[in-house]
Amino acid sequence: MKYIPVIIVAAIGIVSCKTTSINVAVPDQFASKATQMKVSGLNGWQFKPQINFGNYQTSKVKTGWIVSSGGNDRNSGITNEERLLKVFNMSHDNITTNSKNKFQYSIQDGNLMADIYCLEKASKEEVTTKTPLGEFSKTKNFQYSFSAAILPQTVKDEQWQLVFYNSYDRSKDTARGWFDQPNVEHEGYATNGKQLIDIRPIITDRVVGKDGKESKTLVKILMAYELKIGDGVIGVIDVFNKNVWIYNDLDNNMKLVVASISSAILLRKLELSHT
C-alpha cells in the first residue's frame, strides 16, 4: 500500500515513455558492432506463442497453467488478542503466496537448433490485516527465480544452465520514504561449466528519443538486460521495446546461446512485484 503513489507515477511515466517512442540508450561502441533484431510474436495473449527475431525462430511454446497456491504461514495457536479481534470481525494473518510456471520450446537459426526448458517460481509473504474498514497488506519478503536448461542439438556442445532471480526482504530494506525505491536484489547468469555469461538488469532513466537525442525519463524503469562475458558485452535484451542485440564477432554456437537466453527471458510470464 505504501508504494501505490510510486506505482501510479511509474505507470504514468512508462505510458508517457511508450507514447513518445523512446529506446534504451545502447552505447554506440557496442551498437556499431552488433546486430539489432526486432522481436515479433510477443504482443497480446496467445495460447502457444511463437516468437522470431532476425534469423532466429522459436517453435510454439509448450506451456502449462500458472499454478498458484497460498496459505497461512504461521505455525502457532491463536493469541488472546486475535480471539478478541475476531469478535469484531478483524484479523491479522501472515500469508504466503506461491506461483509456478513451466514452459519449453526450441529455437533455430536455419542451421543450428537448441531445446530450452524453463521454470519460473515466485513466492511472496505478506502480513494482511482485515478490518471492517477494509483490507491492508504489507509485503514482508518476496523471491522470484527463473531457471532454464539450454540444450544445443549439436553433439559436441554442452548444456547451458540459466539462473536468474529477484529478492526483496523488508527487514533489510533501507528505503523509508514514501517514494523511495525499495532495495531489490537482482542477479543472473548462464554457464556451461566452462564459460560464464553475466546477466545484469539495466534500470535507468536515460533513454534515446526518436530524434536520437539522449534524455532522462521521470522514473527509473527496467529497460533491458545486458549479457557480458568478463567485461565484454555480447548481447542486450531490450524488454521495453522488444529488441535483441547480438555482438557480431561471436561464433554461431555462442550466438545461438545468446538468442536462447534472450528468448527465454522475453517469454517469462511471472513478474512478481514486492508491492
Partner: peptide, 25 residues
C-alpha cells in the same frame, strides 16, 4: 500531454537513487 502531466506530478515528488550492488546469492 501525458509527459507534461507526469512532469507536474513529479515536481512534488523526490525519488531515491537506484539500488546498490550486492553479493551474489
Amino acid at each position: 500531454k501525458k509527459v507534461y502531466i507526469s512532469f507536474l506530478l513529479l515536481l512534488f515528488v523526490s525519488l531515491a537513487h537506484a539500488q546498490q550492488q550486492r553479493d551474489r546469492v
